[in-house]
């Protein structure tokens, strides 16, 4: 069973009389352990697809099944639980709480979980350590560099140990060196830990870290290519 199944998915925005068809009937499947990059120019609908997959937005047409269950059958509470326990989000703009430490930011998802409070500290510290940011744990997020901010955001996405991570242009606001570190981190999460990663990018170089690339243009999938069969196969093995 595919982790994510999308059939004829569409999303239309209405603003008064104007209608924008952001996604126009896309279909694909993503299995556990895959590292998929969704590529396309801005306005192509790639972010909308990711937001729908991440339960942050709802489709206006078609079918989206997560773990075999139709998205329509998830209540608001269940959707929140899935986001909390099964999905991690990394955003282009980091979305860290200002005037708050890295530690507090990484702890945030735990508030909405049923993880016993006694485990929180260990979880937060291990997530921060996994992105090599332990020396910045007590830093206010505003004092971090761009790359460090994004690593803090990744640590936050990892603290609940979710099997699936969505990364929306994670290197978009970073210089190439910091971007490379972030991509290496994501790649490691996929290869060594078997996590499913779904990445949105418009940079070919960034997309090349993925094992599969979905090219989106004008709300439709143009090409679906597996660039590194070897790596994907490896992660499939790991997840078994």
């Amino acid at each position: 069973m595919a982790l994510i199944e999308v059939e004829q998915l569409s999303k239309t925005y209405r603003d008064g009389a104007t209608e924008t068809r952001a996604v126009q009937g896309v279909s694909f499947q993503i299995h556990e352990g895959e590292f998929v990059a969704i590529m396309g120019p801005s306005g192509s609908g790639k972010s909308t697809i990711l937001h729908i997959m991440g339960f942050l937005d709802t489709p206006t047409g078609g079918i989206y099944r997560f773990e075999g269950k139709h998205v329509r059958h998830y209540s608001d509470k269940e959707r929140a639980h899935v986001r909390n326990r099964k999905m991690g989000f990394v955003f282009q703009a980091f979305n860290l709480l200002p005037r708050t430490t890295v530690y507090e930011n990484v702890k945030l998802p735990l508030f909405y979980s049923d993880v016993p409070e006694s485990e929180w500290d260990a979880r937060v510290r291990s997530a921060i350590a996994s992105v090599n940011l332990s020396h910045r744990a007590e830093y206010d997020t505003t004092r971090l560099s761009g790359g460090e901010k994004q690593r803090a955001a990744i640590a936050r996405a990892l603290v609940m140990n979710p099997p699936l991570i969505f990364a929306d242009e994670p290197t978009g606001n970073l210089d190439s060196k910091s971007g490379a570190v972030v991509m290496e981190t994501l790649q490691k999460l996929n290869e060594a830990h078997g996590r499913t990663i779904i990445l949105i990018t418009h940079e070919t170089l960034t997309a090349e870290h993925a094992g599969r690339i979905l090219h989106v243009r004008d709300g439709k999938i143009e090409v679906d290519i597996h660039v590194a069969q070897r790596r994907t196969a490896h992660s499939h093995e790991f997840s078994k």
Binding site: R83, N95, Y112, S113, R156, M160
Partner: peptide
Amino acid sequence: TREIGLRKALGATEAD
């Protein structure tokens, strides 16, 4: 608003 969006993305329900 962004913080609210973030909290929801991280698993906060409407009630939270």
